[in-house]
Amino acid sequence: MTLFALGLIGLLTRRNLIFTLMSVEVMLNASGLAFIAGSYQWGQPDGQIMFVFILAMAAAEVSVGLALVLQFQRRIPSLDADKASEMRG
């Protein structure tokens, strides 16, 4: 719960793209922790399986996200998320 809140705060306050991705990782990790806690509470393996799926999803997400960050840095020589406002209507 606290970890999730910290990740959300990081996501909302930081403008650097690397920090944004790191905050998303923290939030995913916190949700996985909640699943493990449920698995512990009921003594079933299902929560741990959900954590394995979250892990796979986080790996896919972070690879695509970091490729996007590299691409962003090539186009706009900065890592500031506010600079990417070219599509403003």
């Binding site: 690397i18 991705l21 493990i36 790996a59």
Partner: peptide
């Protein structure tokens, strides 16, 4: 400590190993 040793190993190997190595590579490249 809450009785999930397999998931604990996965956390160390995949999160702290693979995903963080990806992050460090990108930070170093930038």
């Amino acid at each position: 400590l809450v009785g999930a040793p397999f998931v604990s190993a996965l956390e160390v190997i995949i999160y702290a190993g693979a995903i963080m190595v990806l992050f460090i590579f990108v930070v170093m490249m930038l």
